[in-house]
Amino acid sequence: MRKKAAEAAAPAAAQRVQKVLAAAGVGSRREIERWIREARLRVNGEVPSPGTKLERGDRVTFDGRVVHWRAAGGAESHVLLYHRSPGDALDLKAATSRAAEQLRLPRSGGRWLAIQAMPPVDGGLEILTDDGAWADRVSRGAHALTVDYMLRMRGRLNDELVAEFLAATDSEGEPMAILAAVATYGEGANHWLNATVRATRPAVVRHWWAARGLIVGRLMRVRFGPIQLTRELPRGRSRALTSAERGALLEEIAAAADASSLEPSVA
């Protein structure tokens, strides 16, 4: 299992160990509580109770590795939901600079990263963060999340093809998992398709339809796990993810890992 030290911002007031480490992206609260039960996580050399609160100077270890603390008042990490237009390359510097102005964010102390970025030809929901540990944690669990794509298509779409797509398990040898597919038929040859997938790249979806004579003119990601892209966020704009949304994302990853009996690891 790959493990490395994670940094968490020490709270001004004592908070429960699972809350602090979950906020740092070390794991979900559910995972951290399990690690406590398994005696893998220790505070000052002792296995804590789930209600143990961390104080400044406490030494936290996971499987013998130290979880380092940043001093209170250190640089706050940020996670953004960015609405990218299809066809526009993801320019992290430009996107985060605009977001800093729009949202009046304090200056970031870290390097911005994109989590599971969409290909340049596609667009929609992008998640950006300057928290490397949190980004690593989410990226390693993203394959288990369900994702919604919105496709605009041109060609002879019908119910039989939609049913075939829903039953597909691969495209040109690459695995795909289609959990739901709902078509909205337009006039002429233009149609829309809402698809829910897991561990399926946008390019694989495009190739599958192209092999059947339909061209995907636009593909947008509109949901990533519990995070939704809504009409309230215009293209080219960002909003900060709330702590509840960040926690929900980690919880969904943890639930999927539990279901698949995956071994947890620390970012």
Rank of each mutant, 00 (worst) to 15 (best):
K3E: 11
E7F: 15
A9D: 06
A13M: 14
Q15S: 14
R30H: 15
E33K: 14
R34C: 11
V43F: 15
E46T: 07
S49W: 09
G51L: 10
G51Q: 10
T52E: 14
L54E: 04
R56Y: 15
D58Q: 04
D58C: 09
D63Q: 07
G64V: 00
G73S: 08
E76Y: 11
S77G: 15
L80M: 05
R84I: 03
G87L: 03
A95Y: 06
T96S: 06
A99C: 05
P106W: 09
G110P: 07
L113F: 11
A114V: 02
I115Q: 03
M118W: 03
P120E: 05
P120S: 07
E126M: 11
I127V: 06
I127H: 05
T129L: 06
D131H: 14
A133G: 09
S139E: 10
M150W: 14
L151S: 08
D159S: 14
D159L: 13
A168D: 03
D170H: 15
M176I: 08
A180N: 12
A181E: 02
A183Y: 07
T184N: 12
Y185M: 06
E187A: 15
G188D: 05
N190L: 15
N190Q: 14
L193R: 04
L193E: 04
N194P: 09
A195M: 06
T196S: 12
T200R: 05
A203Y: 07
A203R: 07
A203E: 08
W209K: 01
W209P: 02
A211C: 14
R212K: 08
L219Y: 11
M220Y: 07
R221V: 02
G225I: 01
Q228N: 12
Q228S: 13
L229D: 03
T230P: 12
R231T: 08
R237E: 03
R237T: 00
S238C: 10
A240R: 10
S243G: 12
E245I: 01
E251F: 11
E251A: 15
E251K: 05
E252C: 06
A256S: 10
S261P: 07
